[in-house]
């Protein structure tokens, strides 16, 4: 009975989030964080960042990948299947309906106004998550990770460096740092 309720919550949550991922796949990350980290406590802050990295580095839409990862972490393979279904259902229904009269929708003034308003809120939602996640990274009080964060932002924003390359470099730097620390501890 309790399992059944968990599956339902998982499915309905993901469906609700998917219906609001305007403006690209990354928008689902703050929504998921609010729901699964802050509200339901099914995942922790670090894990959410890990899952985002994996979702970004895998083929396919980020929103779909992130949903699969969250579903799997919470309830295994059945959870993953459930979250995929929940994620694709809202866009499937919405686009199927809109495709029947899409020129009218595209040219509607009020739709445009609402979209403009929502875009500002989407930017705020992302800003909010960057502040919260950034604080988690800085809590380590290590210059390396703060430097990686700033460096990656500059590299992708000003020099258009490929994101996958940045992930590989940062992963290697992190691995080297942790292994080095362990070696120091063992010697001491």
């Amino acid at each position: 009975m309790k399992e059944k309720k968990k599956y339902w919550t998982l499915f309905l949550s993901v469906m609700q989030l998917s219906a609001f991922t305007f403006g690209g796949g990354f928008v689902i990350i703050p929504l998921m964080r609010k729901k699964f980290v802050e509200k339901l406590h099914w995942l922790d802050e670090q894990e959410m960042l890990d899952l985002t990295a994996i979702a970004q580095s895998s083929p396919g839409a980020i929103a779909v990948n992130a949903s699969i990862l969250v579903g799997y972490r919470v309830a295994g393979v059945p959870g993953a299947l459930l979250t995929v279904a929940g994620t694709i259902l809202p866009p499937l229904v919405i686009i199927a309906v809109i495709s029947m009269f899409y020129t009218a929708f595209r040219d509607n003034v009020f739709v445009g106004m609402a979209m403009n308003g929502m875009l500002a809120a989407v930017a705020a939602v992302i800003c909010d998550v960057v502040l919260s996640m950034g604080r988690t990274v800085l809590q380590d009080r290590k210059l390396l990770y703060a430097g990686l964060m700033a460096g990656c932002f500059l590299a992708s924003e000003w020099f258009q460096v490929n994101i996958l390359l940045l992930l590989v470099v940062c992963g290697a730097a992190g691995a080297a740092d942790v292994l080095h620390e362990r070696r120091k501890e063992r010697l001491a």
Binding site: L49, V129, S156
Partner: peptide, 20 residues
């Protein structure tokens, strides 16, 4: 653990860039 720790700041930067 090390790889994931290194990747986390990159993820925050990525989201910040998309947000900008």
């Amino acid at each position: 653990q090390g790889i994931l720790k290194g990747v986390r700041p990159a993820v925050v930067a990525m989201i910040a860039s998309a947000g900008l």
